[in-house]
Design a protein around this nucleic acid. Structure first.
Lengths: 319, 319
DNA sequence: ATGACGTCATAAGCTGGCTTTATGAGCCGG
DNA sequence: CCGGCTCATAAAGCCAGCTTATGACGTCAT
């Protein structure tokens, strides 16, 4: 087959939506990663449980779809091309996100009969728990996990009613009747699009200035909004919001598109900061840090799988 | 349909590999996001270009696959359940990774006839460019982009031979014959698994101690290895590596699994830090920061799409 | 009340992609 | 020069998901 047969195409036209028409499916991406690992189509095929011709055809159609040669085939095996190595790394990102999805979904599905029942706040369940569960699975592959997401009160209720083995909450204090240990910190970051004037500042932002500026925020009552309110109450209180949106992602999208500065959990914006779609604005003299704690019924230190999960989240799980 | 009909299953058994058997495909995830946005199966179906029954069936089989109810159907529309909201957020992560994949792949496919030709170093092409291209596409949807990845010399050669319109390099200086501007910083971070003793340190690491410790590293000759070598030469030079691995990802995996401390670009580990699969170890008194620069032929300030891309990466593109 | 419009669900039939099996061709080392 | 590996090609089957057509249910306005 000649490379010239591929349609080069431009990408301006019809580039919106329909992602799955232009991105290979997960099975194909896993296969590609397996090829990268093994240096052989056949071996990769064996790993993912299909036959060699199927793998050959699948890689080939992926190359046709992307318009790029991904592997150099030789009678002695297959190596990634330069472009293939790049594509493989992007593919790995997708697969990792899929692993996190899977870990979360598996936990969510668990029923009462599961062995480890976790109750966690939204932020933790959403951003941190999937990663922890991937690690836990590596360590104790036979642990069945179930997950219940809710606010601190819900978490406490579950734990005290023996409906959960361990909980994770975000907040200023440990709820009554529970013991806990800080496992991470959720710092709220002031962010703006790189084009925003604040992105050019050298000096840290003044709390009063932050308080006086209309921001893109979650609706009143959300966890991050509460923390922000509390932190800025001493500096005149929060100004009227520029936009009030219902989800973290909506806030993120508004900030990225330049609507205005926003305040978001660092956990939610690691990716955007790394790729400079958002810029963090330093703020001085205001405590935007929130403790994330593992919690359990007072006196009942976690044992078994719960302890395993706890030790993954913290080096010294001394409660 | 009764919820009880779903097989609850445990996830310890057969949890390895075969991700695509347990994670819905991209089309289904996009559909779910559309449902979340519109609050209606029919509207979501219209958005993704399928019929309403197809959407209904697809969501239903996704719920069966995950074992969790995702949407509350009512004659007045469909809202996400609590679990559905969580799943949707995890799904969004996958879709975002897929968008980055797509942006990169589209650029890679471009041929000589493309309108904006970018030459970039591996790290930048891999971690930053996809995000920038997503933003660029939002701003100038009809720009066709092509991407060539290579080291600084390759980038310079492309630019000077008028085979690229703009380049991105990482390194200490701007190559001869080029002008450039710093667009970001790539800080090398010392990282270890949370279980590693270093993760418990309060005091920053001493450069000499870092230099004396066997680390998990990329092979000699890689960009990050060079920077590390240079930075530590004043402190006795790098110790014999604990492991020398061929790819960033392999290094990451080794570090996460506790093989030992590693040194990696911050860009590569944002996710692992956020989920605490890795912990960054502060180091004092050593410069592990590397400038990432946009570059162009001396005197020929970028214009048109190249300038558009440049302004996305930096607030003040004054070269 | 009742008809119009919205929602989602069900059923039947088709289509196309991916799979498997079977085979062939190229390269290498004993 | 044969046996081992590699990947490619061809033919046939299966299954998932699509579409079209229809129905049931709830809300709202007349």
């Amino acid at each position: 087959m000649s490379r010239e047969a591929w349609d080069s195409g431009t990408y301006g036209s019809e580039s919106r939506g329909q992602l799955h028409h232009r991105v290979p499916d997960l099975g194909a991406l896993e296969l590609l990663l397996a090829v990268a690992r093994h240096g052989s189509l056949g071996a990769a095929a064996r790993e993912v449980g299909i036959t060699q011709p199927a793998a050959s055809s699948r890689i080939r159609s992926m190359e046709r779809q992307l318009g790029v040669a991904l592997v150099d085939r030789s009678p002695r095996g297959s190596r990634l091309t330069d472009a293939g190595a790049l594509v493989t790394d992007w593919a790995r990102r997708i697969v990792e996100a899929a692993e996190a999805f899977d870990a979360g979904a598996q936990a969510l599905r668990g029923r009462r009969d599961s062995r480890l029942r976790v109750a966690a706040s939204m932020t933790i369940a959403e951003y941190l728990l999937p990663g922890w569960l991937i690690a836990l699975r590596a360590e104790r592959p036979d642990t069945a996990v179930s997950l219940q997401a809710g606010n601190s009160a819900v978490v406490a209720e579950r734990l005290l009613g023996n409906e959960a083995d361990i909980g994770f909450v975000e907040g200023l204090a440990v709820p009554d009747g529970l013991d806990g240990v800080v496992v991470a910190h959720d710092r709220l970051a002031v962010v703006a699009a790189p084009s925003h004037p604040w992105a050019r500042r050298r000096a840290p932002l003044d709390p009063a200035e932050l308080a006086a500026t209309p921001l893109v925020l979650r609706e009143r009552g959300s966890g991050t909004r509460q923390v922000l309110d509390a932190a800025l109450s001493a500096h005149g209180g929060l100004a009227q919001p520029l936009l009030e949106l219902a989800s973290t992602t909506a806030v993120k999208a508004a900030a990225v598109s330049g609507a205005g500065p926003a305040v978001l959990s660092e956990l939610a914006i690691a990716e955007e900061l790394a790729s400079r779609r958002l810029v963090a604005i330093p703020v001085r003299g205001v405590q935007l840090r929130r403790d994330l704690r593992a919690v359990w019924p007072a006196g009942h230190r976690p044992t078994g799988p719960a302890r395993g999960l706890l030790s993954l989240t913290r080096a010294e799980p001394t409660g």
